[in-house]
Computed example of a mutant assay.
Amino acid sequence: MRNAVKKTWILPAALAGALTIGVGAADAQVFTPSYQAPVVMNDLGIYLSDGPGDMALEGIYRSGPMGLRIGFVDAVDDLLSLGGEVRVPLESAPIDVAFTAAAQGLIGDFDAIGVQGGLSIGERFVNPGVALTPYIHPRIALIDGIATDDDFEAELLGDLGLDAEFSSNLILRLSIGLSDNTPDVGIGLAWRR
């Protein structure tokens, strides 16, 4: 009974928190979509995302709780994007929850860097032939560069995501940004190792 009560308030609280995320605005984006469901997997994927003025193409390699990403972002100029991430599931939660942290930088005619931390909250539903994991990923970021005065500024970020795992070891990942500081939409295809 106690776990059922916890499940009833955690998801609405997370959704309410996500709705408040869309209040800030940035002139450009350091972070591409996280594509971090609360379920840890070993995979290699390619991802495309689009936001206001920013198109990104990147590859993400994940092994256990760690991940590396590299790609190109078209923001004001073509920029190289490099990043690292960690995702640690919280075992005591009644639904799937993982602590996430990441650093990402843009290198080109101008440089920018950001660090972020948050929670990925969702639930994995297994059906014959496919497993679906819808999730919400609110986080706080410190960003230096792009539209800032060379000082780190705090931003609220958030994504709604969906992982669709197929029996062929392919994973389709979708992401919808919930704030002005995250790309509007992202899609990717990964191979589970």
Rank of each mutant, 00 (worst) to 15 (best):
M1I: 13
N3P: 08
N3G: 08
V5R: 14
T8D: 12
W9G: 10
L11Y: 04
P12S: 08
A13T: 12
A14P: 02
L15Y: 03
A25I: 08
A25D: 11
A25S: 14
A26V: 13
V30E: 10
Y35M: 09
A37G: 12
P38L: 05
P38T: 07
P38F: 09
V39F: 08
D43L: 04
D43N: 14
D43H: 11
L44C: 00
G45H: 01
G45V: 02
I46R: 03
Y47T: 04
L48G: 10
S49V: 09
D50C: 07
G51R: 05
G53W: 09
D54L: 07
D54I: 05
M55Y: 09
A56K: 12
E58D: 11
I60V: 15
R62H: 01
G64F: 05
G64Q: 02
P65L: 09
P65A: 12
G67V: 01
R69L: 12
G71W: 09
V76C: 14
D78H: 11
D78V: 14
D78R: 14
S81W: 00
G84P: 03
V86N: 02
V88C: 05
L90Y: 07
S92E: 11
A93H: 01
I95H: 04
D96F: 10
D96K: 05
V97W: 03
A98W: 01
F99T: 01
F99V: 06
T100W: 01
A103Q: 08
Q104E: 15
G105K: 02
I107P: 06
D109A: 14
D109M: 08
A112F: 01
A112Y: 03
Q116H: 03
G117L: 07
G117R: 01
G118L: 05
S120H: 02
S120Y: 07
I121C: 06
F125E: 01
F125R: 09
V126M: 07
N127C: 11
P128H: 12
G129I: 09
V130E: 10
T133N: 08
T133F: 08
P134R: 07
Y135A: 04
Y135D: 04
I136H: 02
P138Y: 02
G145M: 10
I146S: 12
T148I: 06
D149W: 00
D151H: 09
E153F: 01
A154F: 09
E155K: 15
L156A: 13
L156H: 00
L160C: 06
E165D: 04
F166K: 02
S168A: 10
I171H: 01
L172A: 13
S175G: 03
G177D: 03
D180P: 00
D180G: 15
N181T: 13
T182S: 13
T182R: 07
D184G: 11
V185Y: 10
V185E: 01
V185F: 15
I187T: 06
A190Y: 08
W191R: 00
W191G: 00
R193L: 13
